[in-house]
């Protein structure tokens, strides 16, 4: 009998965790790091804490995961680090970046940078899963789950030497309702922050960037959107000075409305944008910021 443990590695993952649990159509518990509501339809809300490297965290999760057929978490760099190790510890199958559930053992996921959607059948339980919440309906709220606390007592030999998290004060890119992204034409970090950051702050949006912009030092790593960066699914994605490579498109396909601003009328981004404006971003973006 299927029974899922869905892990929310941050408070902002809790609703996505419930969306997956409800879509799976099997009883599920939610293990959450940080706060979470108790009306998400889970059997149990299990609170956990601990900010440790992947070896200790996966070791701790292994004990909690016992007895579940599915152990799932919202896709992120953190969850891929930890969940794949957990799958290794459990000698389990793993399905990464699930976007749809056909049955409790059949899932859909993108491969080849999103050019292909593959159907994956799981042949053995338990299965470890990471998923993209944008693919699932918002969870039905109601009822009250029982609550408990798990203490994760895992061990590992990795030591964290230092952390440099850049607190931008902006919404989380993968959860944001609006995203404003820029490409290499932004020239330098200061210009990028001024033009792209300026519009983002006016909209209350997160800031994204292309791989080219990140590689040339214009935008910070954690802003990279695309196959090898973050996958976003906002209501509105504004791409300024972005040509629209396959790698970048892989990260923005799930956006509800894509706006492209580019001075090259033949840029591939216009083939997928809902609204396209052929204009110099240095004119158009500040004008938008001013008129909003």
């Amino acid at each position: 009998m299927a029974k899922a443990l869905v892990i929310a590695f941050s408070s902002s993952d809790a609703e996505g965790a419930a969306a997956f649990g409800q879509a799976l159509g099997a009883p599920f518990d939610i293990l959450h790091f940080g706060d979470a509501p108790t009306d998400l339809g889970a059997g149990k809300m299990i609170s956990a804490s601990g900010d440790v490297p992947a070896d200790a965290l996966a070791d701790g999760l292994k004990a909690v995961a016992s007895g579940y057929s599915h152990i799932a978490a919202v896709s992120s760099m953190h969850s891929k680090d930890v969940m794949a190790r957990l799958a290794g510890l459990l000698d389990a199958a793993m399905v990464t970046d699930v976007i749809a559930i056909a049955s409790p053992t059949v899932f859909k996921r993108p491969i080849y940078a999103g050019s292909i959607i593959a159907t994956i059948e799981v042949l053995a339980e338990p299965v470890v899963i990471t998923f993209r919440p944008a693919g699932f309906a918002k969870p039905t709220r109601g009822g009250a789950s029982t609550t408990e606390t798990a203490s994760l007592a895992g061990s590992g030999s990795t030591k964290r030497v230092s952390v440099s998290a850049r607190a931008s004060g902006r919404p989380d890119l993968t959860q944001a309702k609006f995203v404003v992204s820029g490409g290499r034409p932004l020239r330098d970090a200061q210009t990028f922050e001024q033009v792209i950051g300026g519009l983002a702050d006016k909209l209350g949006a997160a800031v994204g960037a292309t791989r080219a912009a990140v590689d040339s030092g214009i935008a910070p790593n954690e802003c990279q959107v695309g196959q090898t960066g973050k996958i976003v699914a906002p209501d509105l994605y504004i791409a300024a000075g972005i040509s629209g490579s396959t790698q970048h498109m892989a990260g923005i396909k799930d956006s509800k409305v894509i706006v492209a601003i580019n001075k090259d009328p033949d840029a591939p981004i216009f083939e997928v944008a809902d609204l396209g404006l052929v204009a110099d971003l240095f004119d158009a973006v500040p004008e938008m910021t001013q008129k909003l």
Binding site: A92, A93, M94, V95, V106, P110, I111, G114, S115, I116, I117, A118, T119, I120, E121, V122, L123, A124, V127, L236, K253, V257, I258, V259, F270, E271, V272, A273, D274, L275, G276, L277, V278, A279, A284, E287, M288, K291, L292
Partner: peptide, 29 residues
């Protein structure tokens, strides 16, 4: 422990509308 049983193309996004100005863009949004 897993096998791929089929593949398909993702739903393709259609090119939308070209707008001529920032005002027109904001009005559409």
């Amino acid at each position: 422990r897993t096998c791929m049983t089929g593949v398909e193309s993702p739903p393709s996004r259609q090119a939308g509308k070209r707008v001529g100005s920032v005002d027109e863009l904001l009005a559409e949004l």
